[in-house]
Amino acid sequence: MDQMINIALPKGRLGDQVYDMFEEAGFDCPAIREKSRKLVFENREAGVRFFWVKPVDVAIYVERGAADVGVVGRDIILETEPDVYELLDLGVGLCRMAVAAPAGFRDTQSRTLRVATKFSNIARSYYASMDRDIDIIHLNGSIELAPIMGLSDVIVDIVETGNTLRANKLEIVEFFASISARLIANKSAFRFKYEGIDAITQGLSEIVGARAEEDWMKEPEGEEQS
């Protein structure tokens, strides 16, 4: 390939899952599997250069053009609203954005709701859509602790299995957004590296389609078993 496509992958389990998909689509880079301290890996033949970044930084790398494409959770897209193309729902990293509160919590709407979250923008827009007055308490981690310690009334956070919530005696009040990993692209790079980016999108799209079909085929069996 004439032009190298720079790909920002999120460090961690999601990144590993997503790299597998790139590999399956023919955009592999064997060096990435080797244990090393390297941050950048490239396969000139396949025309790809991968680099690992913190999940929350992927959208910044892509929006600012340091990466041509990247993989990022929809939670980050909703929170940071980057000016990028959202080319594909990769169907992995599935979870939901939810409001959770201590068991038995009742929102009487008689006072400002204190909301602890690391997704301030998402929480603000969600409650604004209901004209609800809130006091945002921005935290960077251990969100579940906030209502337990009386810091907030509710939390807004991503929920995968709900185990952490249950362990802390919190329950879901409402799910309001589905989250999954998205393939994003820089709007300018899309013009100048169109063939490469389109090939990656098509390749990954086929894998997503095939996996969805597999899941669909499996579904009736599961129902029968239950």
Binding site: G65, D83, K187, S188, A189, R191, F192
Partner: peptide, 9 residues
Amino acid sequence: GFVEGLPDC
């Protein structure tokens, strides 16, 4: 309008 090397229009 886009220019190669610049991330925004």
